[in-house]
């Protein structure tokens, strides 16, 4: 297996969110991972930002549609035929 290309802290920081969002190709992901393994500061930054993104998701995801809206939508869709306009 070929070892990943060496990248510096600036490049790692630039692609940090792509990495945490799992949006990188396997090669680019390996480059970041290799950098994080040997750079304590970037590793610490990655952990901090990862905690932040998990926090954002946890704090916003619980919000749900109210029951009366759920009922209203169901009725408009299936009991009115779902073809009439909303006003």
């Amino acid at each position: 297996m070929k070892s990943p290309r060496k990248i510096d802290c600036r490049e790692a920081a630039e692609r940090l969110y792509d990495f945490l969002d799992r949006e990188l190709t396997p090669d680019l992901e390996a480059e970041i991972r290799a950098h994080l393994d040997e750079c304590a500061k970037c590793f610490s930054l990655a952990r901090f930002e990862d905690a932040y993104l998990s926090f954002l998701h946890a704090r916003t995801r619980a919000h749900r549609a109210p029951e009366h809206l759920r009922r209203r939508v169901f009725e408009r869709l299936f009991l009115d035929g779902g073809t009439s306009d909303s006003d």
Partner: peptide
Amino acid sequence: FHDLQDSDPEGSFFSQIVDDEVL
């Protein structure tokens, strides 16, 4: 992060912020 890397490197202060404030 640069401000907190020594005092709160794991970002634990986030957990004190409530949903409404985030929204």
